[in-house]
Amino acid sequence: GIDPFTGEAIAKFNFNGDTQVEMSFRKGERITLLRQVDENWYEGRIPGTSRQGIFPITYVDVIKRPL
């Protein structure tokens, strides 16, 4: 089901994660935001896939912030 505490964002740019914990994505992908890790990073996942990880806040347009 849908978790009411998650947020939502759209990727503004392609992001290629450097490490296992970073999640790569392509511009235009819809991302579920799980939490804000710190002032620069979100943790999120791509709905319908097993992809999950952290990524820079500046790479996405936030539609709804996670609670």
Rank of each mutant, 00 (worst) to 15 (best):
R45M: 14
T49G: 07
I54G: 01
K12H: 05
T58K: 13
R35C: 09
M23E: 00
R45F: 15
V37P: 03
I57C: 09
G48C: 09
W41K: 05
T19K: 14
E43N: 04
Q20T: 11
D38E: 07
P66L: 06
S24K: 05
G44L: 01
D61L: 13
D38Y: 09
S24I: 03
A9C: 09
G1S: 12
K12V: 09
R26E: 13
G48H: 08
A11S: 05
R35W: 10
I63S: 06
R35L: 07
K64V: 09
E8A: 09
T49P: 02
T58N: 11
R30Q: 08
R30S: 08
I46H: 02
G48Q: 07
T49L: 03
D38S: 11
Q36G: 04
G28N: 06
V62N: 03
F5K: 11
F55L: 06
D3P: 12
L34V: 09
G53A: 01
V37A: 04
T49F: 02
I10Y: 07
F25T: 01
F13S: 08
G44E: 00
S24D: 07
F25A: 02
R51Q: 04
D3F: 11
E29W: 03
S24A: 07
V21S: 12
R26K: 14
D61C: 12
K64D: 09
D3R: 09
I57M: 10
R51G: 01
N40I: 14
P4G: 14
R26Q: 13
S24H: 05
E43S: 07
I46C: 03
A9T: 03
P56N: 03
L33V: 10
I57E: 07
V37N: 02
F5R: 09
T32I: 14
P66N: 04
D38C: 09
Q20W: 12
D61A: 09
I31E: 00
I63E: 06
W41I: 06
T19M: 09
T32A: 09
T58C: 14
Q36F: 07
I63T: 07
R35G: 09
D61N: 10
I31T: 02
I2V: 13
Y59D: 03
Q52Y: 09
R51N: 04
T19W: 06
F55P: 02
P4M: 15
A11M: 01
W41V: 05
D18V: 15
P47V: 11
F13W: 11
T49Y: 03
V37K: 05
E39H: 10
E8T: 11
E39M: 10
N14E: 09
D3L: 13
Q20D: 15
L67E: 14
L33T: 02
D38M: 08
V60E: 00
I63Y: 07
F25K: 01
D18T: 15
D61H: 12
F13P: 00
K27Q: 10
T58E: 13
K64N: 09
R30Y: 12
I31M: 04
Y59H: 12
N16Y: 14
P66V: 05
D61G: 05
R35E: 04
G53D: 01
R65D: 12
P4A: 15
I54N: 06
Q36R: 11
Q36I: 10
